[in-house]
Design a protein around this nucleic acid. Structure first.
Lengths: 245, 245
DNA sequence: TCAAGTTAAATTGTCGACAAACGACAGTTT
DNA sequence: AAACTGTCGTTTGTCGACAATTTAACTTGA
């Protein structure tokens, strides 16, 4: 369905009508890219005027982009001080993973309940290939992105839009925080095998199985990531904020 | 515990830091009040210029307030069209309550786990009094607010800051949607009794008991509210948007 | 009468400018 | 020497104005 050409509206949406408002969004995207890639580090100041100067726009759209990323959890704003890249502690990450666990556990169960498993399994396999492919060329960031995308597919197809909204927020925070990590935790093929277990659990058609698989999978990731950050914090007790354009 | 004076931090926050940025926030608060009180109805347009004219400010802070409420889920923005009061469907509410269930179930269990029950029970009883008091004078809106506040206390003291962040978003959406309701679902004293059951469960010190109590309590509310909205939707298939200053 | 095309009004997106607020540094006092 | 106070430069919060877009109102034609 939804594949028939729509005769009622204009013929070709050839060029995706780029709304004027897109300016804020493009700025937001550029900032996001800078954060998840690690060019902007936690605690760094994000100056409205500096960004505006660099990008050749006024401060207004930069401000909007900042607010956008603030609600996405990538930036924080101090009154009369401006925006700063959010500093994420190990405790924060633990809270994030605990919430993520609640969401994804239910999402997996819900996906089974509404009978949407068969529809997503092919996409899940595709995403898995992407994941192992990315890890081959040492692109840790892209590998993590593909990993999150795998989980996102499950959440999205669970049918609860709020689950997806929360997941997206958490995912961007996780992606941003893992920008500091330069090594993979596990052998890529082992990770792929773990994800296969999730698919298997989904295909049993048992809600309890699906929940349990998610519980285990995310629990493992949680422990690994949080521990990694705890030792990082032990080494860098208070990283001094850098001034970045 | 948590009752000893904290010697490590500054003594008293004697004067509460009043930031200049408060302007946007005051506008946001005024808009929120208008929405939850029902003066602004779902689908209504919220014009930047009109609001700015009325409040005697420029459009910039109004815009910020709009973005703030957008991330809070009270408004939606269409490109080049401005802000509109979010229309919430029965399905939306069902999704919201399902998410709320996930959060609060874990929050209750977590509260028990970290041993914070004794610290909040007195506050919970105070909030319960507030709730029954409000319902006496027919202030349904305030009663619902007090109800949400009760639940918020539990979430807040659970110790996971993300739980609270999500809950606050959901709470404001619930509060806004229930602005359309003009009658109480249940006898106030029955509601109070139901909340007492939650307190009892928390005091058993058993995580499973706490979870189960929340499951039941929120499940009942979910069914009542969602059903109420389904019949509302049957009557008002597509309420036409009103133009409001 | 209704439909489509055209014009006018209103509203948003963006811009540059101004004043208040903050952080830093220096000077003064105890 | 330490702490407080005053000044200075930088950055944000806010403002009014302009350009682009949408909405409506109006005209025209079948």
């Amino acid at each position: 369905m939804a594949s028939l050409p729509d005769m009622t509206s204009k013929p070709p949406p050839l060029f995706p009508r780029l709304a004027r408002d897109a300016l804020s969004q493009r700025i937001a995207q550029a900032l996001t890219e800078a954060i998840v890639s690690g060019r902007l580090k936690p605690g760094d100041r994000v100056s409205e005027s500096a960004i505006a100067r660099e990008m050749g726009t006024s401060r207004a759209p930069v401000r909007e982009a900042g607010r956008l990323l603030e609600s996405a959890g990538l930036l924080v704003s101090k009154a009369n001080r401006g925006f700063f890249v959010r500093t994420i502690t190990a405790d924060d990450l633990d809270s994030i993973y605990e919430l993520r666990l609640c969401i994804e556990r239910e999402a997996a169960a819900r996906l089974v309940r509404v009978g949407g498993v068969a529809g997503v399994v092919p996409d899940l396999h595709l995403q898995l290939d992407e994941m192992t492919g990315r890890s081959a060329d040492g692109q840790v960031i892209h590998q993590i992105a593909a990993d999150l995308q795998f989980h996102r597919l499950i959440v999205k197809n669970s049918g609860n839009s709020r689950f997806l909204a929360v997941f997206d927020t958490l995912a961007s925070e996780i992606q941003a925080s893992t920008a500091l990590i330069d090594r993979v935790f596990d052998d890529p093929h082992k990770i792929a095998r773990n994800h296969l277990l999730i698919i298997d659990a989904l295909e049993t058609g048992d809600e309890g199985e699906a929940r349990a698989a998610m519980d285990y999978h995310i629990g493992v990731a949680r422990e690994a990531v949080v521990n990694h950050f705890r030792v990082l914090e032990a080494g860098h007790p208070a990283p001094p904020p850098r001034k970045v354009p």
